[in-house]
Amino acid sequence: MPTNLKNKDIISIKELTKTDILNILEKAQKLKQKPQPKLLSGYVLGSCFFEPSTRTRLSFETAMKKLGGSVIGFADPSITSTKKGESLYDSIKIIGQYVDVIAMRHPLEGSARRAAEATDKPIINGGDGANQHPTQTLLDLFTIKECQGKIEGLKIAIVGDLKYGRTTHSLAQALINFNARLYFVAPESLQMPEHICNELKAKKIIFSKHKNIEEIINEVDILYMTRIQGERFPDPMEYERIKNVYILKESMLNNVKKNMRILHPLPRVNEITADVDNTKHAYYFEQAENGLYIRQALLALTLGKL
């Protein structure tokens, strides 16, 4: 059953129902198969990047242009009046008068919700500090479905910085809807926070915590890799000790399931070695491309054109 996302803000993955999510994925799939270069002709996207993020910005702007719409905006807050002390509320209120839909990124948590209060135009959150980045989660789900044929009931390992990584939190929360079996692979000091684990328990999602990739790699359908940043460790010695444990190499793939696919939100630094790229298990570049279709679907849905 299609849900109506017209004029809705896409701020937090937690606010989307399973039906909403499946609807977005289905529309993205259709747009991937059959481009619609005139669908949003005459519409304008406000691309408001209060914090630089070239990849996310280009993905939103390309998505709009591929649907025939146009884009105004800024890539760097230093050129806007925010620098002069204008409130986010005022900035968005004004921009909302020019455009039909806004994609934004901002360094402060909760900024997207605040922005949504300033305008009637739909706000699509492209990342509000360490809080939410729903388009990333949606493209992750889309990619999982694409490479596995389903999302329901899969065995999914999430590896890396699970404590601070908003991507990993949102993904785990979204997978509650799909009855996933989750494996959290991280050093103890960067394990999944308790409030997320409690949420999973309350929803009867089975999960387990692991210290290295080898423990689970041969069991899972999806290996979701993320980067561990050295600066997260209070003790540099601890980082030196563990950093090599969370690097995926081709030699580790000998006994994995045939259908196993490796995802990564990118950019990667060294956590997946280049020799993995040429295996059939590597799926992270396809994943990055899928962001385009998810963002097209969200733009068209919030504008009521799908």
């Binding site: 900024s111 919700r113 605040r114």
Partner: peptide, 27 residues
């Protein structure tokens, strides 16, 4: 890093009472 501490605006919290503990959830 919450927007409410960086912009002139009112805060909104949902509350959750569980026995003797009270949790508040910033909207």
């Amino acid at each position: 890093k919450c927007i409410t501490n960086n912009e002139n605006m009112i805060t909104r919290f949902k509350t959750n009472v569980n026995k003797n503990s009270v949790k508040v959830h910033c909207e």
